[in-house]
Each structure stands twice: as structure tokens, then as C-alpha cells.
Simulated assay, not measured.
Amino acid sequence: MIRHLQSALLFLSLAVPAFSAQAGELRGVVELFTSQGCSSCPRADAELGRLVEEGDILALSYHVDYWNYLGWKDTLSDAANTERQKGYARTLGSASVYTPQAVVNGRDHANGGDDAAIKALLAGFEKKGMGLTVDVGLKRSGDTIDVTIGEMPAGGDAAGRAEIVVAYFDKANTVEIPRGENRGKRITYHHSVRNFEIIGMWSGEQMEIKLPRSVLGEDGQRGCAIILQRMDAKGRPGAILGAAMLASGEAG
């Protein structure tokens, strides 16, 4: 469930000294909306896994809950994921939601199993200067997870304010599906989002947020990603301006 992180869990400071920026390390963000109960999704789930392996795309998988009535309840589904997809539908002017849907940089969408279409969107946004234009850094430092966000680039696409979203995800989950449209299949899901929350607001200035290491779970094996994203007045997601990822196992 999306929620605002309690102020006791983070410390915020502005005008931070120079830090190691990560702009350019990630080419873009691909958010796949999928379901274990959707027969069209396994190809997209595999495609997301390939994007994860390539390493230069923040690839996240959001399991929706609206196919759970088809004989199998998705073990990774969450109503909050469905609401995020519906928010994108309204932002992008779509009349309905579907799976598998890949939303690219919060700006456009394609069939999640269409590798060529996804990469064409990523390349097109880069060419137009609509990629990840704001520096975002994410690293472990002792007992904290340090989030650093750079300044608004001169003449860039980052005018105005944006919200800072953190998504917590599992590296991989392999699921045996005994019922429903994918019955009998054993599918591995990559970077499945288990929770996401808004932790602050960016107004174009350099800033830092410190999260407690405990957000990565007791064993430190949960990954997290920071997404700098515009939201409309109703909280619906829009263009993504910057992102960084700390994969499970990097929390050390």
C-alpha cells in the first residue's frame, strides 16, 4: 500500500555538498503491470527479466489484482499496484487498463512483451531529452540508505515540483501456478514490487534523504528503487525525471 513515510524514519537536508551523481547510469524506467492469472503475461515477465539482466534500465514488476477471480489468486498481487496502473491510465488518456502493460518513463506505454516497442520508446525519449535528466543517487552508508537528488538541469524537462517515491522489491520469486490460465506453469518473476511510498518532495534543488537500513528487511535482501516523478493534483503518476536502484544483496 502506498503511504507517506513517517517523519521519524528519515532526515532531510537541503544544499548538500557535492555527491556522486548517477545520471546516465540508468537509461530509463520500465514498469510492467502483470498477473500470474494472465495467459499473455509470461512472455512479458521473461522480457522484464532480460531488462533486469541488462542492468541499465530500472525494471519493476507490479502484480495487479483484477485477474484474481480467474481461478488463481496472484501471490504477489496488491490493490495498490492496480491503483498505480489506473492512475497511469488517466494520465496517459487510456480508457482502460490491461496486462501485460509496460509504462516507460511514466510517459507512454506498450505491450509488455514487445521488446522492440519498449526499446523504441526508451530511445525516442532519450533523443528528445525526455529520459532521466535529474541526477539521483542511492547507496548504503553504515546503518542508513542515502538518497541524493541533484538540481534541476538548465533548460531541461524538469520544471516544477516532483515527488520522491521509493519502491521496495524482491529480486526474484519463482511461483508454481496450479490453477487459472497459467496452470501447470512454473514462472520466475523479477523485481516484483512489494510496497511503495512517497518519502518527500523535490522542488528543483539539490537534496539528500537518509532512510534507515531496516527498510530493506531483516536480512537486507530486499531491493529498493528511488523514482523522482511528477504527480498531478490528484496524486496520479506522470513523467519520471530521475531514478536509482539498490538491488538486493547490495545492502551488505
Score class of each variant (00 low, 15 high):
residue 242 G to F: 11
residue 160 G to T: 06
residue 100 P to N: 05
residue 183 R to C: 08
residue 197 E to M: 10
residue 210 K to D: 04
residue 227 I to P: 04
residue 86 K to I: 14
residue 79 A to F: 08
residue 179 R to I: 04
residue 156 G to H: 01
residue 155 G to K: 12
residue 235 G to Q: 07
residue 133 T to Y: 08
residue 159 A to F: 05
residue 163 E to G: 15
residue 29 V to A: 03
residue 8 A to E: 10
residue 237 P to F: 15
residue 35 S to M: 08
residue 200 G to P: 11
residue 26 L to N: 03
residue 201 M to N: 12
residue 203 S to N: 14
residue 208 E to W: 06
residue 146 D to A: 12
residue 8 A to V: 15
residue 235 G to D: 13
residue 216 L to S: 06
residue 79 A to C: 00
residue 79 A to G: 15
residue 7 S to G: 08
residue 27 R to I: 08
residue 216 L to H: 03
residue 107 R to T: 02
residue 77 S to I: 14
residue 28 G to K: 10
residue 246 L to N: 08
residue 196 F to W: 13
residue 56 D to W: 12
residue 59 A to Y: 10
residue 26 L to P: 06
residue 103 V to F: 10
residue 105 N to W: 07
residue 78 D to H: 10
residue 21 A to P: 15
residue 22 Q to T: 13
residue 235 G to V: 11
residue 92 L to R: 02
residue 140 R to W: 12
residue 53 E to I: 10
residue 130 M to I: 01
residue 250 E to C: 07
residue 26 L to Q: 07
residue 39 S to R: 00
residue 189 Y to L: 10
residue 9 L to S: 09
residue 219 D to C: 13
residue 242 G to R: 06
residue 117 A to P: 00
residue 115 D to M: 03
residue 174 T to V: 11
residue 212 P to E: 03
residue 213 R to S: 14
residue 234 K to E: 14
residue 126 E to F: 01
residue 19 F to A: 11
residue 145 I to A: 08
residue 170 D to M: 15
residue 33 F to T: 12
residue 102 A to I: 02
residue 151 E to P: 09
residue 184 G to I: 02
residue 45 D to C: 03
residue 229 Q to R: 12
residue 79 A to Q: 14
residue 59 A to I: 11
residue 64 V to Y: 06
residue 50 R to C: 06
residue 173 N to Q: 12
residue 172 A to G: 09
residue 185 K to Q: 08
